[in-house]
Design a protein around this nucleic acid. Structure first.
Lengths: 231, 231
DNA sequence: CGCGGCTTTGATGTTCATCAAGTAAAGTGG
DNA sequence: CCACTTTACTTGATGAACATCAAAGCCGCG
């Protein structure tokens, strides 16, 4: 399943500005030495609700879903996250055990930094701490925004919203392959699998999108945007 | 409306353990000197979406609602907060302007600490920073929990949930006066005013609660709990 | 090959929002 | 302080939006 990979040089890491801006080289080296990476393939479980938290982790590449069990056969997807999204914020500082599960939606690489190394850094480096606070705060704000954005829309609006989310935010293209099943879309935007499918079919019949299995092409962006904004 | 009040001694503050545990007396004194308090009466606007953020603020006494405009005549209530709930987390570290509004649901007192004083403290005191991180993280977790708790329930379940929320969490009593209107309940738990009223009336007819205007008495807690947990 | 999970569509019924209309309560100005 | 206006509350009737149930095709996997 997942496997250790050779770790990169943190100094050169693309994600450095996220957490490790304004950090002394020697501090960064310490962190870098205490860290390890794992790669996961699509579908792999990265961490599970209830497990003990040992590391601060963040997504280096790929795409993941963060979710929580609500029923036997239904999860609630809280967030679909790329690199630069703040993955590990959840519970790390408030709890000893994960409150959420994470699985890879695409092949992904995750960096693990020992929690006590992070805490030491917070202790010693105010700018690092402030940056962390900023990221967590932003993360909270985004969660609230998403939640409101979903619940205020009707079903057509939700599907339009999620399609635009994938096109603009994740893939930056009007044609993309859905990284999730119809069921998962429903678990993200609060609707049943059947209605996800039905609404997608409606959009297809209305010539707003083309569907080929998981591949979606948005052919009438303006109409879609209009439905998203309520029309 | 609101007025400045004489400030208390931070050293003795009931809320000290929340933020200012393990803090040097001289640091606390600095913070204490840079802070001020304001009192608000029920209904007062404490801060408004879009305003510039100048201070880190937290609720010292009272009860407030944190909300966001979604339409002309509908707000979304994000949180109903007491002292010890982390009020000022929102946006303070991630933005220069408030993303939410806050109004007093009961007479309230708010402490204001200059943001740069807080940031200086984060810089100089790792334990303070870690504690702040812990509070923000907890706050995020709670937001997610509440959001899921609401959206997974049907209307009767939501009303049961919110009544138990007030009885257990806010007032610690089976008899209490609602601090919010029927409309506001709807804005908190995602339902129309009419259905809030209808469902409350149903519960009254079923002898689960007694209603006298804003005063609610839970007479059959077990049934209510059952409805909350799905029955 | 067959089983289980994912997808699709249709038919049906429930849940909930909307509309309407009236009462009660609370704030406003003369 | 009382008429007036507005806001909160309440109930019923109606229809739309959505979930549920059912049945069948498809695909990947052991």
């Amino acid at each position: 399943m997942n496997q250790e990979v050779t770790k990169c040089d943190c100094k050169e890491c693309m994600l450095r500005p996220l957490f490790f801006d304004n950090i002394e080289d020697k501090d960064l080296k310490n962190v870098c030495n205490s860290k390890h990476e794992k790669s996961f393939i699509k579908g792999d479980l990265i961490c599970e609700e209830g497990e003990e938290i040992g590391d601060f982790m963040y997504l280096k590449s790929g795409l993941v879903k963060i979710f929580k069990k609500v029923n036997h056969n239904r999860d609630q997807i809280i967030k679909i996250a790329r690199p630069f999204d703040f993955v590990s914020m959840l519970s790390v500082f408030s709890d000893t055990h994960y409150k959420y599960s994470i699985t890879a939606l695409e092949d992904s690489t995750v960096c693990y930094i020992n929690l006590s190394a992070i805490k030491k850094l917070v202790n010693n480096n105010g700018r690092f701490a402030l940056n962390l606070l900023k990221n967590m705060s932003k993360n909270s704000d985004d969660l609230i925004d998403t939640s409101i954005n979903i619940s205020k829309r009707n079903l057509r609006g939700r599907i339009a919203y999620v399609l635009i989310y994938f096109a603009e935010y994740i893939y930056k293209s009007n044609t993309f392959e859905l990284p999730v099943s119809r069921k998962e879309i429903g678990e993200f935007i609060e609707m049943t699998t059947e209605n996800v499918i039905r609404t997608l079919s409606e959009f297809r019949k209305d010539d707003i999108i083309k569907i080929n299995g998981k591949i979606i092409e948005i052919t009438d962006y303006n109409r879609l945007k209009q439905i998203c904004d309520f029309g």
